[in-house]
Amino acid sequence: MGQWDALVDAALARLEARSLLRATRPIALAAPTAAPRTFDGPGPWDHAAVEIRLDRDTLHQWLAEGDEAGGQEEQLDGNLILFSGNDYMGLSSHPAVREAAVKAAQDYGMGPRGSALICGYTTYHKLVEESLARLKKKEDCLLCPTGFSANMAAITALGSITSLLSPGRKPAEHERIAIFSDALNHASIIDGIRLLERQQEALVFVYKHCDMFHLDFLLSSCSLEKKVVVTDRQVTTD
């Protein structure tokens, strides 16, 4: 990590020298009047957001599209648990989450004030970031509006390091970052990598899904100094 720390420090110094390094200034909101409720274990709410019912025609169509027809629809009644969304743990239905959302809307209104860079970053965003950083035992945390944008931001930030350290020109091929990407990475990762390729900030190598031998071969064959392996922690396209 020492080499990467040095690269990041050099890139940040370059931004500061060009007066492009800015800190968001949070808008201070009134402190909450009472401590929020916390999670106290599973309850009857935990399936409310993930239990769905499909009509018979839709169920048959889904099974047929997945080549899984052949009598299975006779064994299913259309009651399913949905794992393809972002709320498969059902936390959006937790009473504490509901109460906090209602209280926040009553006290502060609804909707974003603007982007975080302009006027949308408040003391509560900062509080969430600090809480998550403590939870994960990390130095700091940055909130992104979606998981897709988080992956895009992280990947493109890697390429920005090479551009910042090559002012006034595109990075030469030997200065670029070599990115090794799992063949079944999520679209958000792939889009970020494609953006780096278009900006000529990275060379990309795709290794077979979860094939460490193929990855090792590509890493060993690559002469670039800066190398990054990118893979989903939980492969969503498998």
Rank of each mutant, 00 (worst) to 15 (best):
A17C: 02
I179F: 08
D57E: 03
F217E: 06
P32Q: 03
R134D: 15
D67L: 02
A6G: 02
I177K: 00
H60A: 06
S131H: 07
R14Y: 00
P36F: 01
Q106W: 00
Q61N: 04
H60G: 00
E51C: 15
G85Q: 08
F213K: 01
A202Q: 10
K136G: 00
L76D: 06
V230N: 10
L196S: 06
S221K: 05
C119G: 14
S220K: 12
S188P: 01
M152T: 04
S220Y: 02
E73S: 08
A104T: 07
M212A: 05
A187D: 09
S163N: 03
I155D: 06
T237V: 04
M212N: 13
D191C: 09
L63A: 05
G70N: 08
Q3L: 03
Q200D: 07
I179H: 06
K137F: 09
V229S: 04
S19C: 05
M1D: 11
E65F: 06
F213L: 07
N185Y: 00
L20A: 15
L224D: 00
F83R: 15
H125K: 02
I190D: 11
L158H: 12
V229N: 04
L7V: 12
S163Y: 10
E16T: 11
R22I: 07
K208V: 01
R14A: 13
A10E: 10
E51Q: 15
N185E: 12
S115Y: 01
L184R: 14
M110V: 09
S188K: 03
A183Q: 09
R233Y: 12
Q75N: 15
A101H: 08
L142M: 13
D57N: 15
V102H: 01
Q72L: 06
C144Q: 10
L117D: 05
D182E: 06
G120E: 06
P42A: 12
P112G: 02
L117G: 05
A183K: 10
L12C: 05
G111W: 02
T237F: 10
P26S: 09
V50C: 03
F148M: 05
K103F: 03
C210T: 13
L215R: 04
L215I: 13
M110G: 10
E65K: 04
H214A: 06
E16I: 04
Y124L: 14
D232G: 08
S181Y: 11
L82G: 02
L158A: 01
E16F: 01
I193V: 14
A105P: 00
A157H: 08
L165H: 13
Y88A: 14
